[in-house]
Design a protein around this nucleic acid. Structure first.
Lengths: 335, 335
DNA sequence: TTTAATTACGTAAACGTTTTCGCGTACCTA
DNA sequence: TAGGTACGCGAAAACGTTTACGTAATTAAA
């Protein structure tokens, strides 16, 4: 399998110093083109690639970023990762993945473990279990960090988000235009700005149309599918809403199931609409009206911002990047 | 923000040598419990964590594995990653993600870039574009590697797969029992063992029931959704199959759409069945009969095997781990 | 012709660990 | 008391890079 091929080996074979080899490999101006070419061809011939650990140790650059998210198995996040990966490839960076499973302690443990020089920067979408601003206020001082979708506000860090308030407002108006007056809200991410904005958009749209919001029509998400199902069934049974506005994808399955079990027809008895990046929304029975976030683009933008920071480029003084979501009307709100 | 806290710093504050600190941190038998405790408490106090690059450079262990897969935004792979991550956490390992997008050149480039000590091992599900056994035959000699789902055969490497042949046989029989005699096959992964096994299961089931397989009833997957849609529509129009057996999830949307556009009722005019890990299969219109692979478990098993190798544990002489898929009968094959 | 500047390369230190080897002390055995 | 054996710890090398600095040779400027 041949001895390990490193800079020393290249230097020996070419009868030059390891410093020269290193500089040649890094295309330094100090080295003549002639020497560079000798080094490059031999390097290619021997399949040389620099040892990342040594390089990182000396230069304090890892060529690696971390993505800290609640869960990979989620349409939004997996698409975000695709966007992130695409940009990372362009910059020759490697991508580490960490899943918090909405656990803030795990989240802290992961990010802390990244402060010792394992990565050059972090992309994160924070967990919904808690809103601990202090921790992140400290963190952003220690390492380049970009938030996407689930962000902390008021910190000196780039945030990539979507127009949650506006699109929720618009979606609520769509339901109202379809004749709904008792619009229930399936509430997710209530601790986070995204969740609050969506809810505010919903509330304000109701108010704008002279409809009173009601505590009774709100179901809060729990990490327990059966529990959510029961809550929705209770909601449907007791308070007879004429629409369900789901603020997160996780409510879709229990919501559809609840309607079926209660023998309620969508959209005749109750209309349905949800934030979702489900690719099969149009195949559901009935097809689901969705608010889909540009997940892929969000990942791309977040990664781009991070690399700007890492390369000390100016950030166009824009700390907040806001992308537009898309409301796609389908049968579930049929009107 | 305090100076960088490293072993040297700990050693100075405790008035002992850096060697002692290092050994204490690694719980070496050479160090007294008393000294260890002094080191541990100070380390915790100062939030010390070892520099990964230095540690890796010296010890040749990275505590990192790579996952090389076609795409994250796929229910099967994102679930696999969850399983992998869970095990990696238990072992204190970090997880790098690389997406090949079914491109074998990208696949080679990634894996080659991992051979210089960036990771301790690789988990991979290979791309479907080509079956290049030579490359992997060499690769497995150079680095611990475990295949999952999309594997190369005949190599000295652990493979984690599912019972593709058996479950495809069983699914085909299910269609036959529902009265189908012209069962079309939507063919994916044709270059890979998984794809071949599924197809063989389909063919053998037909044969076992005295049904002749027909070339005309086969549609091969292309990475072009519109093209696949047209192919399926042509299939439905020309050859009037009474069932569609889809061997990969990617055919579901075009298949449903094709039926709608051709005004064919599922399951009355044509029955449908697909390999899929779609969580919303039961909400589709009509709900879809699926073969779901235990993606999460596959990830777990693959990771476990890799860590066994990394820890030089015996592999129970079992190089092939085969998990069972599940056939869930729903309305789309209604009978 | 002398001096300054530039070019092309080498020496050696440094990054923060891990690990081999050796040394001294204390204890035990004969 | 002499010899052996643990035990607890330290000195120093090593891992493969990058880089500050030095130097010799060549070229440009004076």
């Amino acid at each position: 399998m041949g001895e390990a091929v490193n800079i020393k080996r290249l230097a020996q074979e070419l009868n030059i110093s390891i410093a020269t080899v290193s500089k040649a490999l890094n295309d330094s101006y100090e080295i003549s083109l002639k020497t560079k070419n000798r080094v490059w061809t031999l390097a290619k011939e021997l399949n040389y690639t620099p040892n990342p650990a040594a390089s990182n140790l000396r230069s304090n650059k890892t060529k690696t970023i971390a993505v800290v998210i609640p869960c990979v198995a989620n349409n939004f996040f997996s698409l975000s990762i695709m966007g992130i990966e695409e940009i990372a490839r362009q910059y020759g960076y490697h991508v580490l993945i960490y899943q918090t499973h909405e656990n803030i302690e795990a989240e802290k443990a992961f990010t802390n473990s990244l402060l010792n020089g394992r990565v050059d920067g972090i992309l994160t979408s924070v967990s919904s279990s808690e809103y601990n601003s202090e921790y992140y206020a400290n963190l952003v001082k220690k390492i380049p960090l970009v938030f996407f979708d689930r962000v902390y506000e008021g910190l000196d860090a780039v945030k990539v988000t979507t127009d949650d308030y506006e699109i929720a407002f618009q979606a609520t108006e769509h339901l109202i235009e379809c004749g709904c007056t008792k619009i229930a809200y399936l509430f997710g991410l209530e601790n986070l700005p995204a969740g609050k904005s969506r809810f505010a958009g919903y509330c304000d749209a109701l108010k704008a149309h002279g409809i009173a919001a009601s505590e009774q029509l709100i179901v809060k998400y729990q990490d327990d599918e059966e529990f959510n199902l029961q809550q929705i069934k209770e909601l449907l049974g007791k308070y007879k809403p004429d629409a369900l506005f789901s603020s997160i994808e996780e409510f879709i399955i229990p919501a559809y199931c609840a309607c079926r079990e209660m023998n309620l027809q969508i959209p005749n008895d109750v209309k349905m609409l949800s934030f979702s990046n489900l690719s099969t929304a149009k195949l559901l029975s009935p097809s689901l009206t969705t608010i889909s976030q540009p997940a892929f683009e969000i990942g791309r933008e977040a990664a781009k911002s991070l690399f700007k920071i890492l390369n000390n480029k100016q950030l166009d003084d824009e700390q907040n990047i806001i992308l537009k979501s898309v409301l796609t009307k389908r049968e579930s709100t049929g009107c």
